[in-house]
Design a protein around this nucleic acid. Structure first.
Length: 473
RNA sequence: GGCGCGGUAGCCAAGUGGCAAGGCAGAGGUCUGCAAAACCUUUAACACCGGUUCGAAUCCGGUCCGCGCCUCCA
């Protein structure tokens, strides 16, 4: 089966054929660095990570670009409020963002261009749009893109202005524009911008928000590239405007496949600060959830489906991961055992592994059908456990399954425990003392040691393979 | 009002014309100094009403319910 994606542009699932064979150019809308990103933001970044890893899994060489929006209304307003320079203010949130990406095991992109470092490219793009006659400088000195002079406007979201109703978000201070629908390419400097401005042929000012994505994506990926992603809320106006200004400037198709992920809601309601259901990744880590548990929750829901993020879903993820962890531990035990060549299974494990791998890959190729991919993984876990129970697996077979799980994990990145989940040496020692007491049939001492472990926040479980320690609570 | 998405077991969630995946929770069993865990097995579902078809969760029409967007929110 060939790799296929649901293209927002055509609203159909299409086979993915890259511009250059074997290579995939990917532009993923990144954060506006005016605060710490919330869990809804990370839903999008985890989706993009799954996309990136799937492309690589399917043999593509990926060039991913993720922008950092470090100049816009919000960053300027917030930095002035904080009494810091724009650069100093945004830096802390850039740092926080990259730390969070690491917690969620999101693979780094090839490029993280910041808007403030690409002002020249944006100015150049505005110049081309003016030269082409689709932009104009208004009385307020700002430069706007004219929707009227670009007939193709609206190809992504299919909006009929006559039928539209204002959502109340339209700003009423933009009288300078020829038409309400026109959007800013270059915003003339105002008092509220403070120290933030750059010189341009149209005077001091700063770039409009949409412009950075066009300028930077084309710089790193070329005038036409394969895939552009973002949240559904970015389809309009952001992506619509990107298409307009990019294609008007180059006369070429901008993006070939648009992929948009649905929103995340929390406990069934839209996440918002006023509802009190607003979470950052740090909040969740502080509640005792690990990065990979959160990653699993964000990953396990198909990207075009609204994700209902709940405390229960985090606990479910923990249990599901525990099931895989336990299976891996059993396989390692078998792999390291002496029966490397003994006890062959009745049927060759090739069948088991081959089927799992085929199901897993085909699921991902089908527009990132993660639910099917995880089903393939869990079927392997169940079938493998059954064989282990029946003593129908030798070390070589266990080793093959471990390799396959490792292969799956190049896409999922949830199978290895986080560092914080490791057991401290002192706790390990107590558990071993208890194990010795059990061997000596000194159960009173064993129970006392168990109580002591509990006091230190660890529970101990006696499995056929020896004691297992888990943080309690 | 316009554009779009969705309603599958207690919960989450695949499947889009032919015996309804998977995860969590529940139940039974195995194992076990005790406890717990783990593993195996297993219960249970297609919003409603019509239509097309040999056959519909899947296609078509309608109804009800929920959600998103409609100018700078992933």
């Amino acid at each position: 089966m060939a790799l296929q994606f649901h293209n927002s542009l055509s609203r159909q699932t299409e086979e993915f054929t890259p511009l250059r064979p074997g290579q995939a150019g990917l532009y993923t809308c990144g954060p506006t660095v005016y605060n710490v990103a919330h869990i809804g933001n990370f839903r999008a970044y985890v989706f993009e990570d799954l996309l990136r890893r799937t492309l690589k899994y399917c043999g593509y060489q990926v060039t991913q670009v993720m922008n950092l929006t470090d100049v816009d209304d919000k960053t300027i307003r917030a930095s002035r409020h904080a009494g810091k320079s724009l650069a100093e203010f945004t830096q802390q949130f850039k740092d926080a963002f990259f730390a969070d990406l690491q917690s969620l095991r999101i693979e780094p992109a090839e490029h993280y261009p910041a808007a403030t470092e690409h002002i020249a490219e944006m100015i150049e793009l505005v110049g081309r749009l003016l030269a082409r006659g689709v932009a104009y400088q208004a009385e307020d000195d700002s430069v706007y893109f004219s929707i009227e002079r670009y007939p193709k406007y609206g190809c992504l979201v299919n909006l009929d202005p006559a039928q539209s109703r204002s959502s109340g978000r339209v700003r009423h201070d933009e009288y300078a524009k020829e038409s309400v629908a026109d959007f800013a390419l270059w915003k003339a400097h105002t008092a509220e911008d403070g120290e933030v401005w750059w010189d341009s042929p149209w005077g001091r000012g700063r770039p409009g928000w949409h412009l950075e994505c066009s300028a930077m994506s084309m710089k790193y990926l070329g005038p036409t590239f394969d895939i552009h992603t973002g949240g559904v809320d970015n389809m309009f106006p952001h992506h619509e405007d990107e298409i307009a200004q990019s294609e008007a400037a180059t006369g070429q198709q901008f993006v070939r496949y648009w992929l948009h992920c649905a929103h995340l809601i929390v406990e069934g309601r839209k996440m918002s600060k006023s509802e009190g259901n607003f979470f950052t990744l740090r909040d969740l880590l502080g509640q005792g959830f690990s990065g990979r548990e959160i990653r699993y929750v964000l990953l396990a829901c198909h990207y075009r489906q609204a994700l209902n993020f709940t405390r229960q879903s985090c606990l479910d993820a923990r249990s599901a991961l525990q099931r895989i962890d336990d299976f891996i531990a059993r396989l390692r035990q078998t792999d390291s055992a002496e029966n490397r060549d003994g006890n062959p299974s009745v049927e060759p494990e090739e069948t088991l592994c081959q089927r799992a791998k085929k199901d897993f890959k085909e699921a991902l190729e089908d527009d990132l059908n993660i639910a099917e991919a995880l089903a393939a993984l869990f079927n392997l876990v169940r079938d493998g456990n059954r064989r282990l129970d029946q003593r129908r697996m030798n070390g070589r077979e266990a080793s093959d399954i471990l390799s396959l799980l490792h292969d799956f994990d190049s896409v999922l990145a949830v199978l290895e425990a986080d560092k914080g989940e490791e057991v401290p040496a002192a706790i390990e020692q107590l558990a071993q003392q208890r194990q010795q007491a059990r061997r000596d049939k000194d159960f009173a001492r064993a129970d006392a040691l168990r109580a002591e472990l509990a006091e230190q926040g660890w529970s101990v479980e006696d499995t056929p393979d020896g004691p297992r320690l888990k943080p309690s609570g």
